[in-house]
Design a protein around this nucleic acid. Structure first.
Length: 500
RNA sequence: GCCUCCAUAGCUCAAUGGUAGAGCAGCGGACUCUUAAUCCGUUGGUUGAAGGUUCAAGUCCUUCUGGGGGUACCA
């Protein structure tokens, strides 16, 4: 490795010795590889100029073929010594795979049929000194076949995303789509009169969800602060203040496990609409998903892990207890608490006997039903013990007006008809806080939030949508690490762990 | 956290407990329509780390590190 880098550094000096700066300041790529490949005829008369990274080189003495890759694709170039000149051709011979160059010249089609730029002029834009993993590929019946499969080296892909992006065009596509989805989500909300606001990432009192927070310290104030686990309590303060439609689209941080659908920092949309209830939030959820899906896939049907799923609204709605009956064949109403507990203990032998009936129902749903939900489906009316921030169900006593949308077993959001009775809100939060001894994840009571509630919040619908999972669903990626450019990983080297 | 599988050259992978190898990349040479270019020659290794068993360890054992999959936590 060190040898390879030394060899390339020597080439930099050789290039400089020929009077050429291997790190110039700018270049004007007037064309893209994609537009040229799409319509070579158009460029047969006037020369094109493109820039990109050298991805393969086939030297043949006084001529050479190579491929260069830009943001949108690859194109073959053809370099002849008698076309570019003696000195430039010796510079050409100092180039490696991975270098970035700009080329100019007319376009032609080789007699094997590949669109190619006949290089009349080229410039070195960046000499690379660290070799890329070499991927050999071949087109077979229009299908791209990779011989050395770099995708299998996931560690390299996540730790060195630059390399992953260079080598795997489909990875670039996922992040391009992620950007389009964020744009689309914002557009749906702006079109409906929502305004984007920001809530503190550093919070004195964390809340709005049950999760372990990251703790940090502010030196000047000498106080401990927590990273935001949810923007909820701050967004509601803004609704109290008269910003009737607000949303926060930003990172949340939860100090918990990492798996295929969880990353410690993740992107969340939370939207609050005054004078609305959870029915309005269902319509909003459908709009956010459908609009974004149309934007990146051009259709409302997605292909997800081999399944075809249609997102066309209206999505199915099913109450949680009905879903348990339908998918697990259990009629919760006819079971005693003891029977429920024993059913939960089939899946979690350590389930504490003190669990309330509502929590047992929620657990049973999680163990027996969640995976079965192909969806899209809104699971509604959760047991009241599952959240203190939600209003009671209008139809089912002991339950609340909440829903979670599911697609292929993924919980992709959460919404309430928000609690706005300040007296009841205080009771619920204080009752929950009393359980902190038992459940370390219960947040402390946020007095300032309760004070805002006492001033009065209009009836409000609130919606949270996990954006990373949304990107997974809309781009058919099985791991959250494939939709977050720099997922949280253990330090590769133990020494890194001590580096601040 | 627990279970399980994996870690060998820049990349993809071989090597029955017995001299660490191949292809590609790299380096030198030949070649003016190649495309997994071809041909000749060639460099490159603390086998993830540390211990142990053995005459002998990439291979067996233990621990550690990193990763994958599963599971738990994540209302």
């Amino acid at each position: 490795m060190q040898l390879l880098i030394e060899q390339r550094k020597a080439k930099i000096e050789a290039i400089r010795a020929l009077g050429v700066d291997p790190y110039p300041y700018r270049f004007d790529p007037a064309n893209t590889t994609r537009e040229i490949v799409a319509d070579p005829e158009r460029f047969s008369e006037q020369p094109v100029s493109i820039a990109g990274r050298l991805m393969s080189i086939r030297g043949k003495g006084k001529t050479a073929f190579a491929h260069i890759q830009d943001a949108e694709g690859r194109i073959q170039i053809y370099v002849r010594r008698d076309a570019v000149g003696e000195t430039p051709y010796s510079i050409w011979n100092l180039l490696d795979i991975g270098d970035i160059i700009g080329v100019k010249g007319p376009v032609f089609v080789t007699h094997t049929g590949e669109t190619t730029v006949q290089v009349t002029e080229f410039v070195v834009l960046c000499k690379s000194i660290r070799p890329l993993p070499v991927v050999k590929e071949q087109m077979v019946e229009g299908e791209r076949r990779v011989y050395d499969d770099i995708r299998s080296n996931v560690e390299l892909r996540y730790r060195h995303r630059s390399i992953d992006l260079i080598i795997n065009p489909e990875v670039r596509e996922v992040f391009r789509k992620r950007s389009q989805i964020l744009q689309s989500v914002r557009r749906v909300l702006e079109d409906r009169g929502f305004i984007e606001v920001e809530t503190p990432a550093l919070q004195r009192v964390y809340g709005g969800a049950n999760a372990r927070p990251f703790k940090t310290h502010h030196n000047a104030l000498d106080i401990d602060l927590y990273l935001k686990i949810s923007p909820e309590l701050y967004l509601k303060r803004l609704v109290v203040g008269g910003l009737e439609r607000v949303y926060d689209l930003s990172k949340n941080f939860r100090n918990e496990g990492i798996d295929r659908t969880h990353n410690p920092e993740f992107t969340m949309l939370e939207a609050y609409q005054a004078y609305a209830d959870f029915n309005d939030m269902m319509a909003l959820t459908e709009a956010v998903y459908v609009e974004s899906c149309l934007k990146v896939n051009g259709t409302t049907t997605i292909s997800l892990q081999g399944r075809e799923i249609n997102l066309e609204p209206p999505w199915e709605r099913v109450e949680m207890v009905e879903a348990i009956g339908k998918h697990a064949g259990i009629s919760v109403e006819n079971l005693s608490d003891e029977e429920l507990l024993s059913m939960v203990r089939v899946h979690d032998p350590d389930a504490p006997a003190v669990l309330s009936r509502g929590m047992l129902i929620a657990d049973l749903f999680e163990y027996r039903v969640e995976k079965e939900l192909t969806g899209p489906v809104f699971v509604t009316n959760h047991p009241e013990e599952t959240s203190p921030l939600c209003k009671a169900s209008r139809t089912r006593p002991g339950f609340i007006e909440r829903f979670e949308p599911y697609i292929l077993g993924y919980e992709i959001g959460n919404a309430y008809s928000e609690m706005n009775d300040p007296v009841r809100q205080r009771q619920l939060l204080e009752a929950q806080a009393a359980h902190r001894e038992v459940d370390g994840e219960v947040p402390p009571v946020d007095e300032d939030f309760l004070r805002a509630m006492e001033i009065g919040m209009p009836p409000t619908g609130g919606l949270g949508i996990g954006i990373d999972r949304m990107v997974m669903v809309l781009t058919d990626q099985a791991s959250i690490r494939d939709v977050i450019a720099f997922p949280t990983l253990r330090p590769a080297d133990a020494r890194d762990a001590d580096t601040p």
